[in-house]
Simulated scan of single mutants.
Amino acid sequence: MTYEKFKREVERVLQEKGRPASWNEIRASSSSLKQRAPYHVYVQKLQGDIGLVRFKSGARTLWALRSWFESESGDFKNLLPTELRLIILHLYHDTDTDAEAAIAVDEYRQLKRVYPLQHQFRRWDMIEAEVADFFPADDKRPESIRIKGESWLKKVEDAKEQLRLVERTAESGEFLHTDAWKGKTLGLTKPRFRCFYFYDSRCQFFCDQRVCVGHDMEVEEEDAEIIGDRVYFILEAIKRAKREFIWEKPGVEWHIKSVIALTDPGQRRLLNL
């Protein structure tokens, strides 16, 4: 099934139901959605195209439309989770919200921007955050969540687990070449064949798309240290002056927020033989 057909069918079913529903419920209400589990790239695109929101309610994962929660009546807000478990990938001061913030991975392998942080953390820390506003009025970026407290659970120290987490979260570079990912402001990708070049606070690299003739991006993180054989870039959409985000218009422009460099334990063993 093509993405366009998938998008139309999912949106149709959700609109007809008029309430959050599980994937099994959506599939049961359609004659064309046969997948036992939906293709994750399609699901990621739906977040921008139709405002898809996925969250856990009890033991079930529900699919919903963001517009339902932003209405004056605030329908279904009582179904949203009050706590989130996240693994931190990058810490920084967010100038748009003027708060200490983190880019982290949730249980659906989605990047989230959470703020304001009350405590100091480091990359790979797993935290539990108490949600203040799933859709903050002062930050319309779809990945942003306002929290009102957080606690440290543990640190992901195992190299295999770190690599597995990043590999499962990393995305195709398609979003760098098309406007299909409407509303997306965070991304995690890796350069093709570890081919990249840092110079004057910028980086040139090729993503995994065949049409890619190279990207040249500003690097926000100072003194990025490349010490591993697996390199990944955390990307963020650039904003203009007067707090206007380019992602609200066609032709999204990105910059490298942070660099993750890991060593594959399997490769390390081979080198030591």
Rank of each mutant, 00 (worst) to 15 (best):
L84N: 02
T185F: 05
R54G: 05
E70K: 15
K154P: 00
Q15F: 05
W247D: 04
Q35T: 12
F6M: 10
L111G: 00
A137K: 12
Q44C: 07
F233R: 06
V219T: 11
P136K: 03
E248S: 12
V166W: 07
I246W: 09
R168V: 00
K242C: 01
S29H: 14
V219F: 04
K257S: 13
K154H: 07
F55R: 02
K242A: 05
D125M: 15
W181I: 04
C203V: 15
V53I: 13
S172K: 08
D96V: 06
V105C: 13
L117Q: 09
D106K: 06
Q118H: 14
W63C: 01
E100Q: 07
G51M: 14
L62M: 12
V114D: 03
V13D: 04
D106P: 09
E253L: 11
G74P: 09
T95Q: 07
W63A: 02
F6R: 10
F175I: 03
I238V: 13
E218C: 05
R27Y: 00
R123P: 09
V114I: 15
F245W: 15
C203M: 01
G18E: 04
Q44T: 04
V213A: 02
R202N: 13
T169D: 14
D138F: 07
L271G: 10
K112M: 14
K249F: 13
D216S: 12
A241G: 10
V43H: 05
F233Q: 11
A159C: 10
D158N: 15
H93E: 08
L163F: 03
G251Y: 10
E11W: 00
F134Q: 12
E236N: 06
D75I: 06
Q204M: 07
S151I: 13
I246L: 15
G183C: 11
L86W: 06
S151D: 04
K160W: 04
V156Q: 14
A137M: 09
Q15D: 12
D106E: 12
R36T: 10
V41Y: 01
N272L: 11
F245E: 11
F206L: 14
Q120V: 12
E157T: 14
F76W: 14
K17Y: 02
G187F: 05
E225F: 12
F121G: 08
A180D: 06
V43C: 02
S32A: 08
M1V: 13
L52D: 08
H215I: 14
G266H: 14
P38N: 09
R141V: 10
K5W: 05
Q118P: 01
G58I: 10
D208K: 02
R210T: 12
E70T: 07
K5Y: 10
D138Y: 04
T169L: 11
F134K: 09
H215Y: 14
I256F: 01
E70V: 03
Q35G: 08
T97G: 08
E143Y: 01
S151N: 09
L270S: 10
K148A: 00
Y92F: 15
E221R: 13
E222G: 00
S22W: 05
K155F: 01
V41P: 02
G266F: 09
L270Q: 08
S31F: 08
M126R: 06
A261L: 02
A237N: 01
M1C: 01
E150T: 13
E130M: 06
